Computed example of a mutant assay.
Amino acid sequence: MNTPATSITLAATLRDHFTRVVLPVWRGPGFNTALNLPYEAVSGTGERPMPVQRYRAMACARQLFVFSQAGDAAHAEVLFNALLHYFQDRQHGGWFYSVDPQGAPLDTTKDLYTHAFLVFACAEYGARSGNRAALDVVDGTSALIEQRFVAAHGLFNAALDANFSTMTGTPIQNPLMHLTEAWLAAREATQDSAFDTRLRKLAEAIERTFVHAPTGCIAELPLGTHDNRLEPGHQFEWYWLVKQAGALLDGTGLDAALTRAFDFAQQHGVDPVTGGVCASLDEAGRIKDATQRIWAQSEYLRALAIRDDDAARAVLPAQIERFKQRFLQAHGWFECKTTAGEVSRAEMPSTTPYHLATAYAALPA
């Protein structure tokens, strides 16, 4: 791939901002040293944590991924130990959704999204640190997902109660996407062919249940659900994942579908003037939610970076610059903006650095 030098230079400025500005927030004001847990969010200036109502396992796992990828082994180890200490359900198995401000279990729901991020983060941490306990979490949590979250037609339920006896959330797209992401990471970290089988079965189930044939997009809810929606950011995220899977998903139809979905999302979901990616569209491509969330912008960058064609290479430098000007600031980032460019969410959540880290890692260097 012949990448313009401007893309390489601009991408370097994003990584520099991440290293100098973003990571120090989450080692400092964004980290509760008494509990060894990241706060859910910090103020827009990055100087203080927002009032504490809970700590989520998913947020801690995302931070574990970020600091593992960044090579901060010491902080990553602290986060891994915190996950085990606070969120592991030693009575029923699996992981609690959240703990209260004192670190006691708060929401004991067994949430697929959360479990997927435990697998994903521990795969990254285990691969980089060599910590066998982290890879044991990858294997054990993956097996638990197959056993306890299983639903009809090869899918997995979104949520169950604390002891897995009652389903409280039926299959939806987003947790399944992150489970795909997690199992791709686990496959890389463990070299276990069992993840090949898991990924193919899951991909086939997603294609049957969520792929909107006219556009190739993966819908948020099963096809035929009333008031369904298509999220451009998720099309770009899926596009990346399917390209990462490569030949593993040959024959599923997802590659061809997501190539069309990329075009649909780019045409209908990206503002041609500002480059802002809207939150959601209806099935005809009309905007349902015009909010521009930073994670969707980062997924667009990541998808552009992996799309091997002249049009994407031409767009990428300008899109990096527009992203930098519109969503980054001296103290961190702007989480949400309106189409007019006004800040609609001022605080910075601890979950967002994961999106920035994965996008920046994909950009040319």
Rank of each mutant, 00 (worst) to 15 (best):
H85R: 14
S98E: 04
F65D: 00
V99E: 05
Q69T: 12
D72G: 10
G71H: 10
D89P: 06
H85Y: 09
E124P: 00
Q69D: 14
A123V: 08
F80N: 14
D100G: 07
H92G: 05
H115Q: 07
Y125S: 01
G71R: 13
R90N: 11
A104C: 12
V66W: 09
W95G: 01
A73V: 13
H92A: 13
G126E: 06
A116E: 02
H75W: 15
V119S: 11
L106K: 09
E77K: 14
F67G: 11
S68H: 07
D89G: 03
H115A: 04
T108W: 03
D107G: 04
N81K: 15
V99A: 09
D72S: 07
L106W: 00
P105H: 01
A104R: 15
F67N: 12
S98V: 01
S98R: 04
L84K: 07
A82P: 13
S98D: 08
D89R: 04
Y97A: 11
A104D: 13
D100M: 11
H75I: 13
G126V: 09
H92I: 01
Y125P: 05
F117Y: 15
H92P: 00
Y113L: 11
G103R: 01
G94K: 02
V66Y: 12
T114C: 14
T109A: 08
D107K: 11
L64T: 10
R90I: 03
T109H: 00
Y86I: 00
A70G: 08
T114M: 10
